[in-house]
Simulated assay, not measured.
Amino acid sequence: MSGSTQAWVAAGVRAAIGAHTQAQDAGRTDDVVALYTPDGVLQVPGIDPVEGHDALRDAFKGWAPARPQLHLVTNTVITSWTEDEATAVSDVAFLQRGESGWAVQVVGRYDDTLRRHDTTWRFQRRTTTYQA
């Protein structure tokens, strides 16, 4: 899109990040996978990189919530952008609800690279790191 502004890019990137979070927490695997480019890569500590729609679908099916969960993603900063690619960093806290209520399971950071396809932004790469 000619004449893209940083605000337009930031809004698109934040919308993709929010859609990913909502779909993942609801267990909507196909919706999560659709947010990645066909060759998209997910890197999570402790496992080999997950690459491509088929592998992403298998991974997210395996992570489908068995009980209520929330990924609280905040402090998203767009670190670089062009009309067709953007990088962003976000903080994340992962919570699950158990018998005694909600509890934080993991705190970490997302480093995302997204590419624009028509008018939507899709994940090319998401790298997750955990904070000690």
Rank of each mutant, 00 (worst) to 15 (best):
D48W: 01
W102Y: 08
S4M: 11
G108C: 12
V107Y: 04
V44G: 09
L72V: 10
G12W: 00
V33C: 01
V73I: 15
I78R: 00
T127G: 07
H71A: 13
Q24A: 08
P49L: 05
M1N: 06
Q105S: 12
V44S: 05
D31A: 15
T74Q: 09
A132V: 08
H53V: 02
Q43V: 13
P68G: 05
L114C: 04
V41G: 09
A86W: 02
A15P: 04
R125C: 14
F94G: 04
M1G: 15
D25I: 03
D54T: 10
T76Y: 00
W121R: 04
V32N: 03
A103E: 14
V50N: 01
H53M: 11
D31W: 10
Q105K: 10
V92D: 01
Q69I: 15
Y36F: 15
V77G: 07
I17D: 07
R126K: 08
S90L: 08
A103C: 12
D54E: 12
H117Y: 12
A11E: 11
Y36P: 00
R28Y: 10
R116T: 05
R116V: 01
R109H: 09
T127L: 07
G46E: 13
I78L: 12
D111W: 01
D112I: 14
A34R: 10
F94S: 07
D54V: 11
R115E: 08
A11K: 09
G18T: 13
G3T: 13
A15H: 11
V33S: 02
T79E: 06
P45A: 13
L95D: 00
L70P: 00
F94L: 10
P45E: 13
L56Q: 00
Q96M: 15
V104Y: 03
V107W: 00
W81M: 07
Q22C: 09
L42Q: 01
T119L: 08
T29Y: 03
D54Q: 12
